[in-house]
Write a protein that binds this DNA or RNA. Structure first.
Lengths: 191, 191
DNA sequence: GTCTATAGCTTGATAGAC
DNA sequence: GTCTATCAAGCTATAGAC
């Protein structure tokens, strides 16, 4: 019940969860204003237009992901445990009514304001980089097992998690768990 | 240059491609009307409201998938060749500006009219069923290799293809090819 | 089967008072 | 920093003429 004293951060916080749940086009200034007990004009004061708001949202997502990544990388975990953390983070999004990777979505990146989609691409690259690095280390140490390049493997691991998250919204959260379990099975050495 | 004599099927055809490219909320009756040189009221004549149009679109998608599936199943192909066909069908969607599985999207199924999302779920089940069956046969005949249940494997194969398709819109079509190649590598026995 | 005309809503955005 | 008031534009949908 602390911080977020000012209206601006309250807007940002609410917009963040609405972005995750409904996508960028799935909420309006009116939604924000009504839910916060203010007027749309007040929202426009803090974010001149919706594209500006969108850009700041994605920048915040990037910041959050970097914090998460450096934190988990510093904890000297096994590669599979890091991947677990990655999947778990996504599952939490699912539990909170979220849909896509980080809410970065609309998934359909080309339907976003241009400045915003540019930031989304940067974020996507950062996520892919982290995944590839984690997979490469796990492969080198023998904790993980897969064929081909870590960069390519990171591509389908990322795609599978994204896809599983989206499918889970339609088919139920247990399908997400099944899919992730199967994904881990593929990466486990030995059998 | 043949068939689609009547306005109704012209609407359906155009709506189909717009659904694939922009999602259900990404086109309007005005878009349809303007592009076809008719008025919105004419569209309303053929489809009383947009939910009705959406339902018929998904039903048509189901019909198309069933045709595709029975056709490819009758051609006595190897399991991997069938999966290739599945991936290839999706790649064509990508090339035509499409985004999601069949355009069934908005990906965010829970933002669709209820009757429509119900049909989407049926379609999702049919696709999963086909994938699981194909994987099971491939595993039994030794053409494919993976651990765990075919049902679970179908889940992540489907998720990976869906995710790859969406990522490709942001990162480029070559990323889709890379991801699919990596996916096939995982399913290939021997190495 | 297609049209005109229109209703009623929601959206993003701005100007100016307090 | 927040408000009132207002705008043009977009949307779905309907009634009724042709």
């Amino acid at each position: 019940m602390p911080r977020h004293t000012d209206t601006r951060s309250r807007i940002l916080e609410l917009a963040h969860s609405l972005l995750q749940a409904h996508g960028f086009h799935g909420f309006s200034y009116r939604h924000l204003a009504d839910a916060l007990g203010i007027k749309t004009a007040a929202v426009h004061y803090h974010f001149r237009n919706k594209a500006d708001l969108g850009v700041e949202l994605v920048i915040e997502l990037r910041r959050k992901f970097q914090c998460w990544a450096t934190d988990i990388d510093n904890r000297t975990l096994k590669a599979m445990e890091r991947l677990d953390g990655f999947c778990e983070m996504h599952r939490m999004i699912l539990d909170h009514g979220g849909s896509s990777p980080f809410g970065l979505l609309d998934v359909l990146v080309d339907q976003l304001p241009e400045r915003m989609s540019r930031e989304v691409l940067v974020l996507a690259g950062e996520i892919h980089g982290w995944l590839a690095r984690t997979l490469r280390q796990g492969l080198a140490s023998g904790e993980l097992s897969f064929h081909g390049e870590p960069d390519d493997q990171a591509l389908i691991v990322g795609a599978a998690i994204l896809g599983a998250l989206l499918m889970a919204r339609a088919l139920g959260a247990d399908k997400y768990r099944s899919a992730i379990a199967q994904l881990k099975k593929q990466l486990t050495p030995g059998k």
